[in-house]
Structures are given as structure tokens and as C-alpha cells.
């Protein structure tokens, strides 16, 4: 995680993390991106639900949450993940780790229905996060010229919210390997757009999402000049 991303939020008041959140968990190569609901009770309880998977027993208890130095932490014994989040950020999210894996998570406040632990509508339709976000415009960042000159490679991860019009809001860097990649990553993200959707009453109107940018350089091999290897036979006898 980048120190600069943490420092940027150093002046913010700690976020109130209690309540239900619509979250994405990423970074596990086997599970892929996971949509989940997280609920933090004022009594220290933490619960997780995966919408659409088990409607009868939707909420799985996790470890109790704790806060130390404005950092929220809790664990999921089933997956072995330990979650951390800096609370002095505009949004709720951070990183998770297991003994061998490392990933991130990002949340937006869930709607009232989810907050009330109602996960399905009367018709049995899962209430939250069943539709994926579909990128409509996915702008590519320009590789910074100075980074090429200095042969710098790097990575950035920005988490943000998407409103029902498909517009990106509140971008926040979760990971940034070098400041040189901040502006192009942010510019590209803000030029991007998702397909709009219809928000239903009781559901959260904003959707959480993250985008990672991997900046890499490939060495171009020297062009082979076939004439360089041709014997001229200047002294050849007729």
C-alpha cells in the first residue's frame, strides 16, 4: 500500500463504519472479484453475506471488529483473511491478507433494506448487487514520458463509487507505487463511464468498484539489418 494514499486522507475525520456496506473483495486468483455485504454492529459484531448464494442463512459471523489508531480490523476464519481499513478515508476499504495472498476491499454504504438485514425481496429476488457494472467507456492512461525515460514501471489501484447514471465518483487511491502514475491513472478513470442502471427503492444507489492499472515496459529488440551481414566480395575475382 502506498504511503501517499494514506497521507492524503490524514486530515479527514474517521469514518463511521457501523451499519451495512455493499463491498467488493478482489485479489484472490481462485475466487476472482467477490461481491459481498458487510455489516458492522455497534456491539462489535461483524457479519458477511454473499447476495444470491444462500438466502436462508445469508449472514455469516466474522470475528469481532476492533479499532486501533484509526485502523479497523477483523478476520474471516473461513477464508483465513485478515481485513484492515484506515478509517481516515472518504470511503470504507483497505487490504486483506492471508498467509499467502494479498488483496483489497472497498465498500459503499448499503441501502436501508440491506441495513435492516433484508436480503431478498418478497419474490425471492436477491436485493443487492446482483448486476455487474458494465464499462461503457474505458479510457486508457498515457504512460508518463518521464517514467519511460527513467524506465519506471508501477501499479495503481483506485477505488470509487458509481452512481446509477454510470458516473464515477469519489476516487481514492488504495495503492500507488509511484507518484508519477497518479495523474494519468486518475485522468483515465475520470474519463471512463459505466452503463446506467435503474436503482430500486431501498437499495443503495451507489456501487463500489476498483480499477487497477499495471504500468509495464517491454524492451524492444534492436532491428536486425540483413545487409550488415552480407559479404560484399569487393576483392572477389571475376
Amino acid at each position: 500500500m502506498s504511503g501517499t494514499a494514506e497521507e492524503a486522507g490524514a486530515q479527514l475525520d474517521p469514518i463511521d463504519h457501523t451499519g451495512a456496506w455493499t463491498c467488493i473483495l478482489y485479489g484472490d486468483p481462485d475466487r476472482g472479484d467477490e461481491r459481498a455485504l458487510l455489516s458492522f454492529g455497534p456491539d462489535g459484531s461483524t457479519r458477511l453475506a454473499r447476495p444470491g448464494q444462500d438466502v436462508s442463512v445469508p449472514w455469516t459471523p466474522l470475528s469481532r471488529w476492533s479499532i486501533e489508531n484509526d485502523q479497523l480490523s477483523f478476520s474471516d476464519a473461513r477464508s483465513g483473511r485478515h481485513f484492515l481499513a484506515a478509517l481516515r478515508r472518504p470511503g470504507l476499504g483497505g487490504e486483506w491478507r492471508t498467509a499467502t495472498l494479498y488483496g483489497g476491499w472497498w465498500c459503499t454504504k448499503a441501502g436501508e433494506a440491506v441495513d435492516a438485514r433484508l436480503l431478498t425481496e418478497p419474490a425471492g429476488i436477491p436485493i443487492a448487487m446482483t448486476m455487474p457494472l458494465i464499462p461503457e467507456i474505458m479510457a486508457t492512461p498515457d504512460y508518463p514520458r518521464q517514467a519511460i525515460r527513467e524506465a519506471k514501471e508501477g501499479r495503481a489501484v483506485i477505488c470509487f463509487e458509481v452512481d446509477p447514471r454510470g458516473v464515477v465518483h469519489d476516487p481514492h487511491f488504495i495503492e500507488l507505487s509511484d507518484e508519477i502514475f497518479r495523474a494519468p491513472s486518475l485522468d483515465a478513470l475520470m474519463r471512463s463511464h459505466y452503463q446506467p442502471w435503474t436503482a430500486r427503492p431501498g437499495r443503495s444507489t451507489e456501487r463500489p468498484a476498483c480499477r487497477s492499472f499495471a504500468y509495464s515496459l517491454e524492451r524492444i529488440t534492436d532491428p536486425f539489418d540483413p545487409f550488415e551481414s552480407v559479404e560484399p566480395f569487393d576483392s572477389a575475382e571475376p
Binding site: 464499462p135 504512460y143 468498484a209 517491454e218
Partner: peptide, 20 residues
């Protein structure tokens, strides 16, 4: 000069991935 060589000799690439 190293910067000039890098500009000519390195092909930049950005791979983006959405998590949602």
C-alpha cells in the same frame, strides 16, 4: 542519454482491470 535510449527502446504498456 539513458532517458533518450529508454524512450526509443522501451515499449510502454498499461493493463487495466476492473474489480466490481
Amino acid at each position: 542519454l539513458r532517458g533518450m535510449i529508454n524512450e526509443r527502446g522501451l515499449r510502454p504498456r498499461v493493463i487495466m482491470e476492473d474489480h466490481q
